[in-house]
């Protein structure tokens, strides 16, 4: 009899722990949930969101919430990260898919937007003087004189992003690895502006963008 009573006392806490473990109620939408979700992002993007060139993950700290949300949704929808040539995108897409609860994308985007931008150093060697002409002729219409972007035109700030990442994405737009999905209307606009760009033009424009900081 004593043993039976003991087993009840042992079993009750175990059942209680089990029930608690099964409680899947997420924390409310907002910074706290975003910080918790960011733990999944940190192994690649870094604790501060500064990115890591060695594994081709861009700096995301301080990007606007609306842009982060739109890109995460693009990954989820398969507009981004679904092309065989976009290897870093292929890594990002399944991670975005894991943000599957209502409010996850908003929360993590809000948290990342709150981080301080890092302005990583330049690694390319384009001609900023030549790039300025191209930038002022084409890019400025959406990304602005200061490169800080325009939410209305869905153009993100580009001054705080790794230059190698800008080059990679311009190449992706040009090849159709990004901005080719019919539903990605803003991406299509960007793609149209890159198809005529040469490798050198891209590097020159990026060199100019780096001077806007």
């Amino acid at each position: 009899m004593i043993r039976v009573r003991s087993s009840k006392f042992v079993a009750l806490p175990i059942v209680a722990i089990g029930i608690a473990a099964c409680d899947s109620t997420p924390p409310p939408v907002g910074m706290a949930r975003g910080e918790e979700l960011f733990e999944t992002c940190a192994p690649c993007h870094g604790e501060t969101g500064a990115g890591n060139a060695d594994i081709e993950t861009p700096a995301i700290a301080g990007l606007p919430q609306w842009y982060l949300q739109s890109q995460l949704q693009s990954f989820q929808e398969g507009w981004r990260g679904q092309h065989a040539d976009d290897i870093p995108g292929l890594r990002m897409r399944p991670m975005a898919v894991t943000l599957n609860r209502e409010g996850d994308i908003e929360s993590v985007s809000q948290y990342v937007a709150s981080l301080d931008p890092t302005f990583p150093p330049s690694t390319l060697h384009g001609n900023a003087g030549v790039g300025a002409e191209q930038y002022r002729a084409v890019c400025v219409a959406c990304h602005g004189e200061d490169g800080l972007g325009d939410e209305v035109l869905r153009a993100p700030p580009i001054v705080q992003i790794h230059d190698w990442y800008l080059l990679q994405e311009l190449e992706n737009y040009r090849s159709g690895a990004r901005g080719a999905h019919p539903a990605d209307t803003w991406g299509i606009t960007m793609r149209a502006n890159t198809v005529a760009m040469t490798d050198q033009t891209m590097q020159d424009v990026i060199a100019y963008v780096q001077t806007l900081r």
Binding site: G81, A84, I87, L90, R91, R93, P94, M95
Partner: peptide, 11 residues
């Protein structure tokens, strides 16, 4: 069949 983090590409 090409495996990469974290997707499969099929040619």
């Amino acid at each position: 069949v090409i495996g990469q983090q974290w997707a499969w590409t099929f040619q």
